[in-house]
Design a protein around this nucleic acid. Structure first.
Lengths: 196, 196
DNA sequence: TGTGTTTTATAACGTTTGTTCTAAAAATCA
DNA sequence: TGATTTTTAGAACAAACGTTATAAAACACA
């Protein structure tokens, strides 16, 4: 090794992530990335490979920093509160998103995944992790009595995953608190152990 | 008027719709459109305006032919069956979609709407129409006893809209019957008038 | 203090992008 | 039939695309 990097690889990846998150893959040009990261094209290609590889790394970073971090944060709570805190966080972020960037995982699921098998596998894997998180919360909640047994845990987990995806889509077009919280209430009622 | 068109405007719009639906706005080039519609670029611009205007017209046509048509079809049924038929149709289409095109309205909501106010208003309007369809079904069902009063009709309608969006996102990444039908079961159980 | 290796900067590459210009072809109305 | 007007066809446009080639600059190790 002879000459060290003049830039912080993590900072550059963060800047690239911001671009891809806000504008998507196709609409983000290499020149955008060069301008926003502050390093030259040669350095970008040298450090991360081509545009697609850079996108993949940026998506990985998003998943670690946003999705996985949220799951870990909520996992520390009792099961029922974990689910409620999870969605409360999603609603808060969706309403406080003036650029309407939405969730990069959902964006990737629709823009890139259909045409890129590797990205699709990655996205599908993360979605399965979220589903597993929900299922574990539900199983624990059903065991300690804080969540109803009215539906199988598998179905409830799938249901919450669907609600999560739907919430993130709706928030990008109609970021209204009444809509987001309203659509959530029946889902939470479904978990209520005391029947109506 | 001196020289008549040599092409059928509706056919050309259908061909353009197929392109935009399958590949999205950015990834569909004018040359793709020229090749698939079979008419020349000059004729395309003359008849429909620029690429964005063509996309807007194609999206309108999709909404009329797919979304509005489904609502009309289901509206003929009793309220509870209308909702079930609606989602059964969505699941069937999602599972029988080898190209993974998904729903063009959802695609537009994520790819185009955030950067195009006119398209966003159009998409938001259609989503509100779907929500209204759900609410009317629920109100009618609550009146005739086929749907539970456990939740306000407004919330149930929002909930179903969210489930619909989530289903269409998940189907593009994990088009598995168990997932789609499993996610739907708790939502349908929520409508069940007989409490658990 | 050279020598070797990697990163830097910039220009350039050939495509492809959306759009428009030019001119030929076609059909109605006089 | 001739004049007029629109639609065609296809080349051409400048700009932007992702990517790479070239050479200067910067450090580690001898």
């Amino acid at each position: 090794m002879v000459r060290p990097r003049e830039f912080d690889e993590a900072e550059v990846l963060s800047a690239a992530l911001k671009c891809f998150w806000a504008r998507g893959f196709e609409a983000t040009s290499m020149r955008d990335l060069i301008a926003r990261t502050g390093i030259t094209g040669a350095s970008l290609y040298n450090a991360f490979g081509d545009k697609r590889a850079l996108y993949e790394k940026a998506l990985d970073r998003y998943v670690e920093g946003s999705v996985a971090a949220r799951i870990e944060r909520c996992s520390a709570l009792p099961p029922r509160e974990a689910i409620e805190a999870f969605f409360a966080d999603i609603v808060a972020r969706s309403l406080g998103d003036p650029d309407r960037k939405g969730c990069m995982l959902v964006n990737a699921a629709l823009e890139v995944a259909p045409h890129d098998p590797a990205i699709r596998r990655a996205v599908a894997g993360v979605l399965t992790e979220i589903e597993t998180f929900f299922r574990q919360c539900i199983l624990a909640g059903q065991a300690d009595g804080s969540i109803a047994h009215s539906q199988p845990a598998d179905d409830l987990a799938r249901h919450l995953l669907g609600i999560l995806m739907g919430l993130r889509v709706l928030a990008r077009v109609r970021p209204e608190r009444a809509l987001l919280e309203g659509l959530l209430r029946p889902a939470m009622a479904l978990l209520e152990p005391r029947p109506n």
